[in-house]
Amino acid sequence: MNRGLWDRETVAALLLIAALPLALTWLVLDGPFGLLRLAVFLVTAGVWHLVWMLARAQPPSLAGALTALALAVLAPGELGPVALLLSTSFGVIVAELAFGGWGRNVLNPATVTLAFMGFGFPAAPWPDLAVQLGWASWAMLAIGLAFGVLPGPVVLGALGTLGLAALAGLPFGGAMPALCVGLALLVADPVASATTPLGRWLNGALYGGLCVLFLAFWQDAAPVQIAVSAALLASLAAPLFDEISIALWLRRRNRRHG
């Protein structure tokens, strides 16, 4: 009767809207082959959502489309159909559906899938992202922040760390689009990132810091590989940052109120 807008599917729809500039830029650049690739991921994720709906009465979510988009943009090329289906199914099921669907998951399913592809099929080449995609990801971040569906401190923390590194003279050498797309599609996920203000700053800063570290010391890594690895580690650490933030808050509070 009397209710506001911000339920799960509204947030998922707003995230999709925010991702539209990125998706369109990528489709224009990649053409029909990109469309086919997106369709494959959409169908794979969609089928698993349907299976879990029928078997476990778990309502499917629009967030599955966001996962598919992230995979289509960031997944390594030249993966065989078996490898592609296997890793997508692993990510979608283990990271999202097994936890009870989007909103209850601990890690971003796209991050898990990409990490699985990276570890399982190291020979597959990571894609090179065009510089336009980097700018399109800024548009996604801006729209998401304006709607309040992306966690602001995560985005600012990551961009701040990367900006500081750039000022300090670290050679990015064309890695910027991959790092920004990784931030937009993988790290700044409202569900899988930290939820407390301090935790979010740390979460974003860790992603930025890891990217800088990998760029400096991981010689033969592709930019997307760096972004995916940093995103995985940053989101694994998110609950820890929340714990730290809440512990500090409680300490301050106990000191004040006895």
Binding site: L5, R8, R56, P59, G103, V149, G152, P190, T195
Partner: peptide
């Protein structure tokens, strides 16, 4: 109706709106 009654309580998505609705004074999502 089976779908809408199966997964209760619905998951909370941490958004700026949720943060504001709790006044920003406490770890709202937790």
């Amino acid at each position: 109706s089976a779908l809408s009654h199966a997964a209760r309580p619905l998951p909370l998505i941490p958004t700026a709106a949720l943060e504001q609705s709790m006044g920003g004074a406490l770890p709202a999502v937790a």
